[in-house]
């Protein structure tokens, strides 16, 4: 298991060479499963090489658990093949849907939160978990809109899902912050009912603000002070491994290492305090 005080990095192609040749002291790596589902090309070779130096977890964006379409077995078989190759500490994806009628948005779209969708999602999570032979870790997404028919809060929904299926929760702290700000909720409200007992991993990332004050989950800047502080608060509630995500405007790897070290130092300080 990855120790709870370790901070990992999202593996991106721009960092392959540095990671392979310089082996920087990064605690663990999270791969985007979907980037490695193809059996050919450099991907499998890179994973084979990096697995020797870093513990890995798999994070997917394409399970589409909430889609009205049947589960995609081609995707599941590819995921299982990758799981067999990588032997990850855990496998995660999102509570969302990505497409319908065979069309794919390649985006993470929000689920309505009702008893009916809860049961639907739970049944599909059961199937996936049985197929992969492991419990899933599922992430809260950024949602810029809410549904009129929602009858459960995000945390009630997540908590019920975990109870029904045995899955765990990947709490994306940046998404938590962005959603709270965009919904005019206080962070106290957001933190109050979080199902901490199910949290198995955290994500942190940067966000940006539009001229109108809307926060966007862009993953293309360093962590804001607010998200770092919120991360430390969450970690006090439930210590779990943290993953730094960066998808755009990628800085040199050393800059991200520094960011991870700063966050680690902050967690340590607050732990002592």
């Amino acid at each position: 298991m990855i120790p709870v005080n370790q901070i990992g990095l999202g593996l991106r192609p721009a960092y392959y060479a540095d990671l392979i040749h310089e082996k920087p002291a990064i605690d663990w790596l999270e791969i985007v499963s979907d980037d490695f589902l193809s059996v050919g090309g450099m991907g499998p070779l890179i994973l084979e090489r990096l697995r020797l130096d870093y513990p890995m977890v798999m994070h997917g964006v394409g399970l589409s658990l909430g889609s009205a379409d049947p589960l995609c077995w081609d995707y599941l078989h590819a995921l299982k093949r990758l799981q067999d190759q990588v032997q990850p500490e855990w496998v995660s994806d999102h509570i969302c849907w990505t497409g319908v009628d065979g069309w794919s948005s390649h985006d993470l779209l929000p689920m309505p939160r009702t008893e009916k969708t809860l049961a639907y999602l739970a049944s599909r999570i059961h199937v996936v978990q049985a197929f992969l032979n492991r419990p899933l870790v599922l992430e809260n997404i950024t949602a810029y809109v809410d549904y009129a028919g929602n009858t459960l809060s995000e945390w009630e929904f997540m908590s019920c899902l975990a109870k029904k299926t045995g899955c765990s929760f990947l709490l994306d702290v940046n998404n938590l912050y962005v959603n709270a700000r965009n919904r005019d909720e206080t962070l106290e409200q957001a933190l109050k009912n979080c199902p901490w007992e199910y949290v198995a991993q955290y994500h942190v990332a940067g966000h940006e603000e539009t001229d109108s004050g809307l926060l966007l989950d862009t993953h293309r800047s360093s962590l804001s002070e607010s998200v770092s502080a919120l991360m430390a608060t969450c970690w006090q509630h439930k210590p779990a491994p943290i993953l730094l995500e960066r998808d755009d405007h990628l800085p040199p790897l050393s800059e991200l290492e520094q960011e991870m070290q700063s966050l680690k130092a902050r967690l340590k300080e607050e732990d002592h305090a």
Binding site: H106, Y144, D146, Y147, A148, L216
Partner: peptide, 22 residues
Amino acid sequence: APYLENDSLNSKERLSVYQNAY
């Protein structure tokens, strides 16, 4: 629109975030 909450949370700007990203 009928599926979404009818308040500022679901303004055109917010929906356009998804469309632009797509």
